[in-house]
């Protein structure tokens, strides 16, 4: 039941953002749009209510996790992304590379956590996630400037696993 309600509310929210212009309701939406949105979101929730919660875990419904996620995106993640781009600019101009594929064990357990970490690693300095060992969630990272052959997690992605453990586990 809770899957159905969450899917309904999410699709309704997307519909409302995409149709906001002028109208009677608060000067933003027209009544026709609202009714169409409710019917369409009901259909979407009826068809796709099993997609969001396949593992039957509901911990992402806690709003505090989303607040931490926003802080993470605006603070450390954006800063790392800016550093990554200056690094890429340096390597494009000088052409100095020393690449290799290394392995790290971040110790995250949930699928969402490992996805967030892999995406963060791809956008932060000098690293790109290539493959994942699905038995114990080890990540294989393409590192553009290898400094040590046995890197720890802190070399690759500083303290991102702690942030992601607070967001998704």
């Amino acid at each position: 039941m809770i899957d159905f309600i969450v899917t309904f509310l999410l699709s309704m929210l997307t519909y409302l953002i995409l149709t906001a212009s002028q109208g009677e309701v608060w000067g933003i939406w027209s009544v026709f749009e609202i009714i169409t949105g409710i019917i369409l979101s009901f259909i979407v929730a009826f068809i796709a209510n099993k997609v969001l919660f396949q593992k039957r875990t509901y911990r992402m419904l806690n709003p505090l996790r989303w607040v931490i996620f926003l802080v993470y995106l605006i603070g450390p993640f954006f800063w790392a992304m800016a550093k990554a781009n200056i690094d890429v600019a340096y390597r494009v101009i000088t052409g100095k590379i020393n690449p290799g594929i290394v392995k790290i064990s971040p110790g995250l357990k949930t699928d969402l956590g490992i996805t967030l970490l892999a995406d963060s690693i791809t956008l932060t300095p000098g690293t790109l996630s290539v493959d994942i060992d699905e038995k114990n969630n080890d990540l294989y990272i393409h590192w553009i400037n290898v400094t040590t052959l046995k890197p720890t997690t802190h070399h690759i992605c500083s303290n991102f696993p702690q942030w992601i453990r607070r967001i998704a586990e």
């Binding site: 990554a84 781009n85 890429v88 494009v92 590379i97 690449p99 791809t122 000098g126 790109l128 393409h142």
Partner: peptide, 15 residues
Amino acid sequence: DVYTRLHAATKATTF
């Protein structure tokens, strides 16, 4: 090679 090209393409164009 393709991996270093991915570094440039993904990070720089996203930013």
